[in-house]
Design a protein around this nucleic acid. Structure first.
Lengths: 243, 243
DNA sequence: TTATACTCTTATGTATACAAAAAACACAGG
DNA sequence: CCTGTGTTTTTTGTATACATAAGAGTATAA
């Protein structure tokens, strides 16, 4: 019942956190594009708050690497280079495998059931055009594995690494040709974890991430090709400002 | 020469960053103890700035997990439970091994030389009582391995994980009995990386971290025993406030 | 036309002000 | 002595003010 009190109290969220989550989502979804300036007054007017919570939110985005600060010029949305993405995926591959192996040992029957459901849900959705739901259920599938590790630090890091690629997630899921393969990989991963077979789990997850990497790198290259069309004859980017 | 201009320009550091680094060091070194409140006005007076940079620094510490926010109560230095430390060390073990294996493939001659130097420096210091220098050179040794990975994301994460244990670093290095073993382990790691022998590197680093884990967990238990002596008869902690 | 100096505007960095929540305190009543 | 209640104090959360740096624009001179 002290839980109930807590639940009531937790309804309060500081404005800075609302702003943080709002900006964060906007960046990860690509609504704010790399290179775009985050101007405090504009954001403050847009969100109906003062500069203070905006600035505090930007400090968090800064630490997370989603924006970079230019001294006395403010924050701009961080660009992700192909090298950055490769680095992220390299680390993520290792940690996803680690999570899978830990899940083999530690997963509970409930979580195993959820893993199965997520896999089946993906299979049902894979031939539709509902890419958003498909992405969500894919996230769910991996979330279950993370949860099974019972290691909060690992979960936090993996979530962060995964979010670095949200901008490209929908892009590469639109390549419907890969859905069948994703589905197969999910099944392999599920089976390996169910049996507690760390070797198979490790191999299946490794393949899964490798495929994802290739798809994402293809998507980012496509994206960059488009971007280049927006550059002027001197090869300089057109300035893009926040509204 | 545009470098020179940059060097001059980089002399400027926003107050918020100075405050951030100051508070961060104070927490990691244990000068601010877990549970201690960070009161904005006091800190502002102490550091001779206004609340604004203090608050922005706290936002970063919050995201880093070094402080936890209590709504409308402010920030307190985060406590690390034994479970937290185990989680951190579990992830760190995996990533340190990953870094070591990558170093086997990618290390440059210069970095290999630095690795050797760091190892020798450690050997020279291991029988002195200069624990601070010993800790520094131990950090240096691992930094070289990180640098050899050529993966900035991995480096950032590893640094962060390592820093989570700075509070206990000096504690466990005071256990002089372990110095000889640490020295041996460094040598094994160096040799494995020099030969490009991923299997040996992986094994040596794994042992290294395992030993470190045991030492740190022993230190934290010792620490907690002391802490319990500070609790009153009701088992409640004595409040500790920032000056 | 191009370069340069000067102004003017805009946005950041820091300090301060103000409202409201929480804690500390004091006091009356059992 | 304890307990509950009203009051004061402290501290946070948010808004605003002010100084200054960076950039944009403008006019002038070569």
């Amino acid at each position: 019942m002290s839980q109930d009190i807590n639940a009531v109290m937790n309804e309060y969220l500081p404005l800075r956190d609302v702003v943080f989550q709002t900006l964060r989502q906007a960046i990860l979804r690509g609504e704010l594009e790399p290179g775009e300036r985050l101007m405090e007054i504009h954001l403050a007017n847009r969100l109906g708050v003062s500069r203070t919570p905006i600035r505090e939110a930007i400090r968090k985005l800064e630490l997370e690497g989603l924006v970079v600060m230019i001294p006395r010029r403010g924050a701009i949305v961080a660009s992700i280079t192909e090298k950055d993405l490769k680095d992220v995926l390299e680390v993520r591959r290792t940690l996803e495998i680690m999570a899978g192996e830990m899940a083999c040992e530690r997963i509970t029957p409930e979580l195993l059931e959820q893993l199965k459901s997520a896999g089946e849900e993906f299979r049902r959705l894979k031939d539709t055009n509902d890419f958003t739901s498909l992405a969500e259920v894919d996230v769910k599938f991996h979330d279950v594995i993370y949860a099974a590790t019972d290691n909060q630090r690992l979960i936090t890091i993996l979530n962060n690494l995964r979010e670095q690629m949200y901008r490209y997630r929908l892009e590469y899921l639109k390549d419907t040709g890969s859905h069948e393969r994703l589905n197969t990989e999910h099944y392999e991963i599920y089976e390996a974890i169910r049996k507690g077979d760390k070797t198979s789990a490790s191999a299946a997850i490794g393949r899964h991430i490798d495929n994802q990497r290739d798809a994402i790198l293809a998507a980012i290259r496509e994206h960059e090709k488009e971007e280049n069309n927006k550059t002027d004859k001197n090869g300089k980017m057109k300035p893009r400002n926040a509204e």
